[in-house]
């Protein structure tokens, strides 16, 4: 019962106990931080976790140094079109993508360090158009939805080790605009998306088909929901959703994240767990990794939830030097990247 699982949290008890500041990373040349992410970087047979930061017109790569310090390795200048977001590619080394555009994404570009070619840094477009959603997939693939005046195209592009795009695969498009994608964990050929009219769509994305298998409805209380994570268990499809435009209700408070179980055979669904915003807080830009969710609130604080408990487990108040603007999980949920607009990024152990 979702209503019963909503328990107002005691903000004073949350604070920072479960988040420990590990290190701070400051890009002095950055005027406005747009996004932050982590990625694996292989050099001389050694794999390390690097940090990627983006401001409007450049993307920087940071390597770990001794004593929790970070050193900038390289900055890619991306030109006139502003960076909107970093698009990490899970389980891929030395390659990251960025989405560029003004109000919406107009181009996706890969950025690469070729250590075999005298540490040369490269960049090149992967896709251009009116792109509504993009997600990096396993095995160096990228899925995106884009719109022309007549139709929507949903496409998976494979990238080679040198970043160049290989054959693309067109997926069967639903009529509704796809706003977000999520891989179904443990099922290499299953992909889901959320649509502008509260739908969940399921595709089979093996090499032969891009078949649209099922359309299911999320519910009218949660317009334009965003899928963050999906996994299949006991014949049900569990989806972690955030609800940026949901209205506050007395029974459920202000919904931030929900775990919903869908039966793909019948398209019926049931709410499993419900995570609310702390009382008095609004607005959120969220990120999910494993069973952890984080979001920046309009107050300038960052809230962290345990999605299995449905509880807010940590609240980072606005830093004395400025409000938080970005919250992203590293490739593991044990590390939270918290960013400020001036380019400062703090790494917290969770």
């Amino acid at each position: 019962d979702e209503a019963e699982q909503f328990t107002p949290v005691l903000l004073d008890s949350l604070r920072e106990e479960s988040l420990q500041l590990v290190s701070k990373l400051k890009d002095c040349s950055s005027s406005c931080a747009v996004d932050v992410s982590t990625m694996w970087w292989d050099t001389a047979g050694c794999r390390e976790l690097y940090v990627v930061t983006a401001c409007e017109n450049s993307v920087s790569l940071w390597k770990p140094l001794a004593s929790d310090q970070w050193g900038k390795v390289y900055t890619w200048q991306v030109g006139e079109i502003p960076v909107i977001q970093i698009v990490p590619l899970p389980d891929t080394s030395n390659l990251v993508c960025v989405a560029l555009g003004d109000l919406e994404i107009g181009e996706i570009r890969w950025l690469l360090l070729c250590s075999s070619e005298n540490d040369s840094f490269k960049q090149s477009p992967v896709k251009t158009g009116n792109i509504k959603a993009v997600l990096g997939l396993k095995d160096r693939r990228l899925v995106s939805s884009s719109r022309t005046t007549q139709e929507q195209q949903v496409e998976i592009v494979s990238l080679s080790e040198t970043g160049r795009s290989k054959d693309g695969q067109t997926l069967m498009s639903p009529e509704e605009t796809v706003l977000a994608f999520a891989e179904v964990e443990g099922m290499r050929d299953a992909l889901i998306g959320t649509t502008a009219v509260n739908g969940i769509v399921v595709w089979s994305v093996n090499l032969k088909t891009g078949q649209l298998l099922k359309k299911m409805h999320i519910g009218y209380s949660y317009p334009a929901s965003i899928c963050h994570r999906a996994y299949s268990d006991s014949g049900l499809l569990f989806v972690v959703l955030s609800h940026p435009h949901a209205k506050e209700s007395e029974s459920c408070g202000n919904p931030a994240f929900r775990v919903v179980a869908f039966n793909p055979k019948t398209a019926r669904s049931a709410g499993v767990m419900f995570s609310s915003l702390p009382p008095g807080h609004t607005g959120r830009q969220g990120d999910v990794k494993d069973a952890s969710a984080a979001a920046v609130l309009t107050s300038g604080a960052i809230a962290v939830w345990d999605l299995l408990l449905g509880q807010c487990t940590a609240l980072l108040p606005p830093d004395p030097e400025g409000s938080w603007a970005l919250a992203r999980w590293a490739t593991t949920s044990a590390c939270l990247l918290a960013g400020q607009r001036d380019g400062t990024v703090c790494l917290y152990r969770y």
Binding site: M172, V184, M187, D189, A190, V202, S204, T209, Q211, L212, L213, K214, K215, S232, S234, G235, L236, L237, A261, N263, P264, K265, T266, R268, S269, A270, V272
Partner: peptide, 23 residues
């Protein structure tokens, strides 16, 4: 969630949907 809420559940839902006619 109970099966009565969600209807009959299949552990092989993905394979079964893949072999059915596409939408």
């Amino acid at each position: 969630c109970s099966e009565s809420d969600l209807g009959p559940i299949s552990l092989n839902w993905f394979e079964e949907l893949t072999t059915e006619a596409p939408l």
